[in-house]
């Protein structure tokens, strides 16, 4: 493996992603966890960009950092009062869980041995035209269903979160 610039960037971004994912999982204080999640999502967006998926990288920032994470922060700030004072958030089953996660990691790594990652350093930026042709062509039905799902989720969220004003 040659250590050219994209490989180094890849390693750095991967390390940031791993560390911030650990932060999300392990940190007890809930606001720090949210920040860790933000850093994690941004590093994933950076990796997407490195792999040439610039539209996905931008959508990742838009949907996750600008949407999901903000929603999460809202939820934290809304329910924060009832949660203060009890910081013991990690369960006793951590050894079992760790072995499950580790076993899964070994299993997946072995299973993915055969997959050759052809990333050679400079991925060409994917063209918006082709992506939209795929979305509006062969995957049109899935695209429409995803839109329908979003609508259902929107209505559900309003009903669930705002329904107790009777």
């Amino acid at each position: 493996m040659s250590f050219d610039a994209p490989t180094i960037v890849q390693i750095i971004l991967g390390a940031i992603a791993l560390l911030s994912a650990m932060t999300v999982v392990l940190v007890r204080e809930i606001m720090r966890m949210a920040i860790g999640l933000g850093v994690f999502l941004l590093s994933v967006a950076g990796l997407f960009l490195l792999y040439g998926a610039s539209f996905l990288a931008t959508s990742e920032v838009f949907v996750y950092v600008g949407g999901v994470l903000v929603l999460m922060l809202f939820a934290i700030m809304l329910v924060q009062r009832s949660d203060s004072g009890r910081a013991v958030l990690v369960s006793r089953h951590d050894i079992g869980s760790a072995s499950v996660a580790l076993g899964l990691f070994v299993m997946l790594t072995v299973a993915l041995q055969g997959v050759s990652n052809r990333f050679t350093g400079s991925a060409p930026e994917s063209s918006m035209q082709e992506l939209s042709e795929v979305l509006m062509g062969g995957r049109l039905v899935q695209y429409e269903i995803a839109g329908l799902l979003l609508l259902v989720a929107l209505v559900a969220v309003i009903v669930i979160a705002g329904g107790d004003e009777r």
Partner: peptide
Amino acid sequence: IGVLVSVAVFCIGVYGVLTRRD
């Protein structure tokens, strides 16, 4: 590297789902 990172991240997430209580 990318695939390895993704697998590791996935497993970290699994650990988090199993252990976190909030």
